[in-house]
């Protein structure tokens, strides 16, 4: 992964920026603010990743879950959202009206905006740097932060265990039928293995002096001007989106459609 301008920003600030960007998206619902946010975010993403723009496939692949989820979320509101305005089509519980079309569009744009916000701010964050920031800038407890970090590292080992177990079940003659049952016995075995690995790692960490009291941090995690700029940009993006919808009268709290 090549570096971007965001590498100068502390990971916890990036997490903060993600919160600023997503909070209004989660609490309001109108198509305009979300659409404005998406457009601005796209511009920012393109600028940040300008080195990779010629090969956008990786970026699209990372955003794919949101691109699939967004229209599905929109569709459900289009069909079942609170009807209002002109009614276009009804069939059983399904009512498509002006208002539900508006909600559908709003939610679609919103899910895309949420996904974009997280991708732009958080993709490429190194877990170790994040842990350093959480512990030193936000002063979260070291035990929790280092424990979580070690847990993240264990995920790759556990996925290797899972693979081995799946293959082992085929080798044992259990691979032809009973997929559901097989899943549960393998899941139990994985749990056993996770507990064993976890306790071995915890003992190894204790043997290396972890958890004895005050500890220092070899890598200094600091915040500076870049962090301030990052937060200001995030706030400006949110302000722009909300401002547009307020001025044009499209603004809605999320409570309005439930």
């Amino acid at each position: 992964m090549t570096g971007t301008v965001l590498d100068r920003v502390n990971p916890v600030t990036r997490l903060g920026a993600a919160m600023i960007l997503t909070f209004p998206l989660l609490t309001t619902v109108d198509w305009l603010s979300a659409t404005v946010t998406v457009i601005v975010e796209l511009g920012i993403a393109a600028w940040i990743n300008r080195a990779q723009l010629p090969r956008p496939r990786a970026m699209i692949r990372r955003g794919l879950p949101f691109l699939i989820a967004a229209p599905l979320a929109g569709l459900s509101l289009l069909l079942y959202g609170d009807p209002g305005g002109r009614i276009h089509w009804t069939w059983g519980l399904i009512v498509i009206s002006d208002q539900s079309i508006g909600y559908g569009l709003a939610v679609t744009a919103r899910v895309v905006a949420l996904g974009m916000a997280c991708l732009v701010t958080l993709s490429g964050v190194d877990p170790t740097d994040m842990a350093d920031g959480l512990a030193q800038v936000w002063h979260w407890p070291a035990r929790f932060v280092i424990g979580a970090l070690a847990g993240v590292r264990m995920i790759s080992q556990l996925s290797a265990d899972w693979q081995a177990m799946k293959l082992a079940r085929r080798a044992r003659g259990l691979g032809d039928s009973g997929a559901v049952r097989r899943f549960f016995t393998a899941a139990f075995a994985l749990l056993v293995s996770a507990i064993r690995r976890g306790s071995v790692l915890a003992t190894a960490m204790e043997a290396r002096g972890f958890g004895r009291g005050e500890r220092t941090w070899a890598r200094r995690s600091t915040v500076g001007r870049a962090d301030v700029v990052c937060l200001l940009v995030a706030t400006a993006v949110v302000g722009l989106g909300l401002g547009c919808s307020a001025v044009t009268g499209h603004f809605h709290w999320i409570g309005d459609i439930v």
């Binding site: 290396r208 002096g209 972890f210 005050e214 500890r215 941090w217 070899a218 890598r219 200094r220």
Partner: peptide, 12 residues
């Protein structure tokens, strides 16, 4: 390598 040193609270 630094992990153990941090736990002994050595100066960074």
């Amino acid at each position: 390598v630094a992990f153990g040193c941090e736990n002994l609270a050595m100066t960074p």
